[in-house]
């Protein structure tokens, strides 16, 4: 349905070469942009948010020209956008589609939820071991407390 409607297609224009990140929860679009450092690159970046989606209600989409991502780089967005799909475009054609997956370690991007943790009191990048990828449980390597999905705040 959604692809057959030309008016919807126009909302975010197509790119010739690069990466499309689709099915981002609408509220996480800016988060994903920050996580991938897209606010400070020279490439063309197009994005849309609060777009109608049959599956997700409101979704966001980001298109980055002439930029391709390594799995490790892209997987860090899985915490903010577990449903995201990555579409690799070459010459206006979809050449690859993949889903993001939560990594084994998470560094820097998440705050430890424990207010007494040393990482919340000194300038220390956080480090977590991912104990569970489905319901997302992150064990802080410093205070050893577990930050769960609902407590995740991005730095």
């Amino acid at each position: 349905m959604e692809n057959n409607d030309p008016r919807k297609e126009l909302k975010v224009s197509a790119i010739e070469n690069g990466t499309v990140i689709d099915h981002i929860p609408a509220k996480s679009v800016f988060q994903v942009i920050r996580m991938l450092g897209l606010e400070s690159i020279d490439n063309q970046v197009l994005f849309g948010t609060n777009l109608d989606s049959r599956k997700f209600g409101k979704k966001g989409i980001i298109k980055v020209s002439n930029r391709y991502f390594e799995a490790e780089e892209i997987n860090k967005i899985a915490l903010a956008a577990p449903s995201a799909t990555l579409i690799v475009i070459r010459d206006f054609q979809v050449v690859e589609k993949k889903h993001v997956s939560v990594p084994d370690y998470v560094e820097k991007i998440v705050k430890c939820f424990n207010p007494n943790c040393i990482t919340n009191h000194e300038a220390i990048p956080t480090k977590f071991t991912v104990l569970s990828k489905d319901d997302i449980r992150l064990k802080c390597q410093y205070c050893e407390k577990i930050t769960v999905k609902d407590d995740i705040i991005f730095t």
Partner: peptide
Amino acid sequence: RHPKDGSARY
């Protein structure tokens, strides 16, 4: 000995 959790690991 330190009052913050995780200070020793750091």
